[in-house]
Design a protein around this nucleic acid. Structure first.
Lengths: 259, 259
DNA sequence: TAGTGGTCTAGACCACACG
DNA sequence: GTGTGGTCTAGACCACTAC
């Protein structure tokens, strides 16, 4: 790692970075941000834990506190870290209730939260077909875990999910473990498998329910359903999950904000 | 406006704000941000124009340049302003191509942009029914403008929009003006009516096409369509537009990112 | 060359949480 | 009281743009 500390002689901003050939310089605070992100990915500070104080980090990286602050500012804006005044800066976790709604944008018409229940239908290991392999950036035929589950809100079947997970990262995952776990699925992934979902992109379409889906969701065959195809990433933009959800939107809607 | 300049005597951080009774203090940079936003709303600096330099603003508001910078940072993050190194800071506008995709999240399956065409079907003044009045925060019966249009991508009818606009703000709007205008609709609103869309919330559902919509969109009655209900705001969170779009998602999808 | 935003630093003080 | 993040300031220098 190139020492971020500026030498006292004012010349030569040290363009030797040795990473990717030429181009793309980044300011000091972004390098610090990268170092922190790297440590987060390595698990040096785990979800829910406090990271060292800004002063500590500044001393460690040999930069000023303000530079560390700007790095942390961006990481907090990206929801990787959470600042708490008077207490410290913490690694974000899917166990805080606050984090749930970042990944489930379905809202009830009446605004109430209500009772939620998860029913696991299937959990098996499969070989990646080429289309999924492409999304996971692995070779076709490598191992994946496939999970199917039904989500009920207030006793009403609302979401039918088909989930594929990176096989190498989710070795011991079974339907039993999923069913026994109390709390959000991404909380389990984080606590039990050390895989934290950071970001995702979703593609939404309206589709007609086929017979099987309609049966499981308790709607008529051919009903309009919202199809949500998600690709999720962990630290460093590494794809680790693909899911395809079918949402019943007669009593719920998918909320999005443009800004 | 309360003078943000700190008196040299170090005591009393001047909690008298006289705005809303008690509670909610905001740091200096947020007050500056508010003052800038207010001027933007008043049209002192118009879309596309350059605002005064950070040094100018700092002198004007009697704060340090760093404080102005932090205010502008947030406004830039919210896409109200655009910074251009070496040139200045500019008021964001819907005329930059960059701004279009912030409000139309529909993407073609093949990733191409292609040819886009807008056909205006209807434009008339109506009295607000109570449901719309509630969303506009006006009284039922007040004037609205209603527009219906069809959006075609590569000659294929893809979006059927029904748009309601705040009547008082869009007095001279006619179907002819809409049809004659080259460029994005929000660009017209901004240039011709001085109303700039800042943010919006959308509610998405899957619905079945009724006979009329299906006819206009060239799909079978009962087909699954993506319904997108949008409430848009201008400066100061003031609601100025409601629209309901029906999207054909057989060759396009609605893209969203979670982070 | 002059003016703009962008980065980095250093120090002071404030607001909050906890023992 | 001590330690944390949060704010504000002031000054130096860099990078980019235009004239």
């Amino acid at each position: 790692m190139p020492s971020p500390a500026a030498s006292s002689s004012a010349t030569a901003p040290d363009p030797a970075d040795a990473t990717s050939g030429s181009a793309t310089f980044s300011p000091l605070y972004r390098q610090i941000k990268g170092l922190i992100t790297q440590r987060l990915g390595e698990g040096e500070w785990r979800p829910g834990e406090m990271i060292p104080s800004e002063m500590d980090l500044a001393a460690r990286f040999k930069v000023s506190q303000g530079t560390v602050r700007k790095a942390i500012d961006e990481l907090a804006a990206e929801n990787l870290l959470v600042r708490r005044q008077g207490k410290g800066t913490f690694v974000a976790t899917h166990h805080e209730p606050r984090a749930q709604f970042r990944f489930l944008r379905l809202v009830s018409d009446d605004g109430e939260i209500g009772h939620a229940e998860s029913r696991f239908l299937e959990c098996k290991r499969v070989r990646a077909p080429s289309e999924l392999a492409r999304q996971f950036e692995i070779k076709a035929g490598e191992a994946l875990v496939m999970v199917r589950r039904l989500l009920l809100f207030d006793q009403r079947a609302t979401v039918l999910d088909e989930i594929w997970l990176h096989g190498a990262l989710f070795k011991g995952l079974t339907g039993e473990r999923l069913a026994d776990y109390k709390g959000p699925m991404y909380g389990l992934f984080e606590s039990e498998f050390g895989v934290r979902m950071i970001s995702a992109t979703e593609k939404l379409r309206a589709v007609s329910a086929d017979e099987e889906s309609a049966g499981l969701l308790g709607v008529a065959t051919g009903s309009a359903l919202l199809s949500v195809e998600r690709l999720s990433h962990t630290y460093g933009e590494r794809p680790v999950e693909v899911r395809r959800g079918l949402y019943v939107t007669s009593h719920h809607y998918y909320e999005n904000t443009l800004g």
